[in-house]
Every structure is written in C-alpha cells, then in structure tokens.
Design a protein around this nucleic acid. Sequence first.
DNA 1: ACTATATATGAACAATTATTCATACATTCA
DNA 2: TGAATGTATGAATAATTGTTCATATATAGT
Lengths: 123, 123
Amino acid sequence: MLSQEKMCDVCEVFDPNKDIVSLLEEKKLSDDVVYELSETFKVLGDPTRIKILHALNEKELCVCDLSELLDMSSSAISHQLRVLRNNKLVKHRKEGRSVYYSLDDEHVMCLFGQGLSHVLEDR
Amino acid sequence: MLSQEKMCDVCEVFDPNKDIVSLLEEKKLSDDVVYELSETFKVLGDPTRIKILHALNEKELCVCDLSELLDMSSSAISHQLRVLRNNKLVKHRKEGRSVYYSLDDEHVMCLFGQGLSHVLEDR
DNA sequence: ACTATATATGAACAATTATTCATACATTCA
DNA sequence: TGAATGTATGAATAATTGTTCATATATAGT
C-alpha cells in the first residue's frame, strides 16, 4: 500500500501517493494568497515590530513615544511603521507635527494573541 | 494636554507622554517572549513553508510527496521541514525509509487560519 | 554485501532585510 | 520669514535567509 505496485499485467501502475498529491493539487491556495499570507507573517516576524504592535495595542502612540519606549532612533521606528502601514497592520492620524499610530483593526491583535498563546503554551 | 506645559512655577514639567511611556514600560513583554513570538511568525513568513503547512493540514505527508506537490527538490523541502520542526510547528513519524510529517497540534492551524482570514478580509 | 531509494545536512551563493546616516519635508512658534 | 521640531525616506552597510549542490546516513530489496 505504501509504494508502487502493479495493478494488472498491462503495465498500469497504481500509486496511492500520486492520488493524494493530485487531490492536494486541487486544494492548493492561489499563489497570491500564499504570497500575501507569508508577507503578513513576515511582517509580524520581527522583534521590533512585535514590540511596536504590543505597545499600540495598549494605546495609540506617536513616533517619538515609540522611539523613547523602545530606545531606538525615530528613523528606525518610522521605517518599521511604514512596513506595518504598507501591510495594513497599523493606521495613522496626523495631529500637528505628530503622527499617531494605532492598530488597523481588532483582527491584528487577534492574530498577535494567537501567536502569543502558541508561544506561551510550550512553557 | 498634548505636549509639554508647565504645572507650576518651580520649574516642574508635566509631560503626559512620559507618563504613558513609563506606564507602557511596565507592560512590556519579556525579551524572550518577544523573541520567540517573532521567531514563530518569521517561520510562518515564507511561501514555501505556508504551502507545506497548508498541505499538511489536509493530510500527513512524506518528504517526497511534498517535493512532488510543490515541485521542489527534496533537499529544499527537507531543509524547510527542519525549520518547521525546530519551531514545533510540525512533528514527524518514521515508517520504513519514509518520514511522515504532520502538524504539531491544532493550535498551528488556528494561527494559520487567523492569518488567512486577515488576508482574505481585505478583498 | 551491494544497490537503490528516502531523507538529512554542511557549505556556498544569491537575495532579502534591518539599521544607520544624511537629508528632506512639514508644521509650529517666534 | 526663519528656526526648531517631528516625521519620512533614499542609500549604504551588515546581517540574515532560502536554495542549490555535493555528500552523508539510513532503510529495503536482491
């Protein structure tokens, strides 16, 4: 059952793996869904951005708040916020010279929370 | 209320941002939780690994099944499976020459599904 | 024991990524 | 208008990452 075996004598080959593979072929995610999904996770896969999102989950903050909180240059923070913004994980609001960032929607924290409970589970 | 203003005439400064920042300081995640969390997301942040996990969600598969399904070398698949294994996202089971991989637990697909619904939402 | 097959792994290379630095833009205040 | 401040961004650099290639290990069949 596990590898190739002949079904009959006219040279037909029955390969269960081939069946499974072709079945899965049909269930494949489209390339752009796979791409977007991996991009979203990739964005979440950076310690600085994790810290930013965790802080923004508590309260909307401007670049210089985050800069102070994470002890990083405002340039570095701004670069990372752009990545988060481009991937629709945070939104921004201007107020005078400051730009306040917050999570784009609850969905983001839900994802974040799922990851957190996965990590905390194996402890 | 938004930026610095004097509270009294003895040179004390009231800065709400400082209060917020120091409040958030206390709520900070520990460094190793941040690290593990970002590592987990980083692992999910690759198209090949997304495809592997999605396939394994349907059925346990061996390296050569995945190799055929994703049209990649078994070496490349094996390398990626090791990454997934090291991060406790998949488990493996030997059967003869083959090694069958499956998702480590339902938690993994839960995380995956959250990401998927986030991606599919903005469409 | 020998051959074939499935999987694993180290090293090298190409590609991607985060941070720093310098600089630009935008807004407020004087 | 000019100076100061908060934010943004391009370029360069350093670090990380995925795949390929060659090779190693393990198991099955002859």
